[in-house]
Write a protein that binds this DNA or RNA. Structure first.
Lengths: 236, 236
DNA sequence: TTGCTCCTCACGTCACGTGAGGTGGC
DNA sequence: TTGCTCCTCACGTCACGTGAGGTGGC
């Protein structure tokens, strides 16, 4: 039997046979006079045995053709139970992401808020992206307890928050000062209600500052003023 | 934010960040005066976005952080349906192998036969291995129709075949000629019944010969004589 | 001479892990 | 001076795929 015979009969590539030689799963056969490998039927049986286990997903390193392998099969079976569960969890997550109308990486607690914001007039998509970024960072930083509390904001509260954010993001740079002030007042009122949720962030000062800067960076000059005034009101 | 900050906050290794730089998923940030990378919160958001998709099993090559990826998610979902089915098929196959008392690579059609042979007295395990080898080769070579017919041999026929094989394999090299003859007669009778099953083998002459030699190689001198005489009887 | 089959390197794949050896600030 | 953190190569992983370049028999 030559390389191609064994390969064809066993349903593998010639390269696969070479690989099995390299890792010692299959002994090198004698050579015929022209240097071609001369396999025996015993080699073919061995390859078939290896493939039967490899096709079940057993790693080549754990295949020993000389030994019965029931224990290894039991291990594999438990591994498959785990994998099936994981795949099903992924499918559930994918389904949830596809259902939602917002971008797939929007944190769950902020979905309604971002959706509401997205539907306001006068807000272009770029600032919405900035809000999404902020939500992603928030999700990361909040301990799970706080995140849960954020989720239970009711529809009215979410709508109000979206109103306020939309007003902030719609502020033009040439907005008159009284308009900036009005936004700051509304913003302070909304933030006051949310403050207990954000308070105990597990952050070093440098990191907190870096994240804060990121939010400021996304805002225009007038918008920064409004946010700044709102924060001053809060600290009073 | 330094490498370790981003890595810790995003739940990845520093090496992973380097890898994302290499493949262009994450831009190289500016360096601070000491040469350390100075990441921004935007980089962190980006890593989180990549990980969210990568954790769902999306290949990095198909992740584009700038684009929404609902279509890709649909593809992934279909892929998972397929994978779950495959894993369940493997579990079924593993379960069947673990149920049986014979070695895991014994072909289904020969299980009862090998089991019966294994339980005969006077047959050591090495010739049983040879019979298993022959069965493996047979399974490979028979078209599925014939293999199905082999499976439906009834209990009595299997027991008779096992009796005859056991008698052949138990033949000592110094067995008297009449004993060899008796085995040959019984063997011929059993083979005559099986012959319709084996007849149309899709083999080149060289390969058939190679497989036949393999069977002969496993037999002792007296056993070969018995097989040879049985085959002569058949061809009459 | 032209195909065909076999041969031997040897690099590529995928998403990083894991040292190896060196530097800068406390 | 001693740790600690960062840096840059660069090889290893897993099971082969895929040329690259050469040889032998019809």
């Amino acid at each position: 039997l030559r390389s191609s015979d064994v390969a064809r009969l066993a349903g593998v590539s010639v390269r696969t046979l070479r690989h099995y030689h390299q890792i010692g799963l299959l002994p090198e056969p004698d050579r015929s006079s022209n240097g071609y490998r001369a396999y025996t039927a015993a080699d073919l049986v061995r390859v078939l045995r290896v493939r039967r286990l490899a096709d079940l997903g057993m790693p080549l390193s754990r295949i020993d053709p000389a030994v019965d392998t029931k224990d290894e099969l039991a291990l594999l079976d438990r591994e498959y139970v785990r994998q099936i569960e994981e795949l099903q969890q992924r499918r559930t997550a994918i389904e949830a992401l596809r259902q939602s109308t917002v971008r797939v990486d929007t944190p769950a607690f902020a979905r309604k808020y971002i959706t509401a914001l997205d539907q306001r007039d006068g807000v272009t998509s770029q600032p919405v992206e900035a809000e999404r970024d902020a939500a992603v960072l928030l999700e990361l930083l909040l301990d799970s307890g706080s995140a849960a509390r954020l989720t239970v904001l009711n529809e009215g509260e979410i709508a109000e928050l979206a109103d306020v954010s939309a007003a902030l993001l719609a502020l033009a740079d040439d907005a008159p000062d009284p308009e900036i002030d009005a936004v700051a007042v509304a913003l302070a009122s909304a933030l006051r209600r949310l403050r207990p949720v954000f308070s105990p962030l597990p952050l070093t000062r440098e990191i907190a500052q870096s994240l804060e800067e990121h939010v400021y960076d996304q805002l225009s000059s007038a918008q920064r003023h409004a946010l700044h005034r709102a924060l001053r009101r809060l600290s009073r």
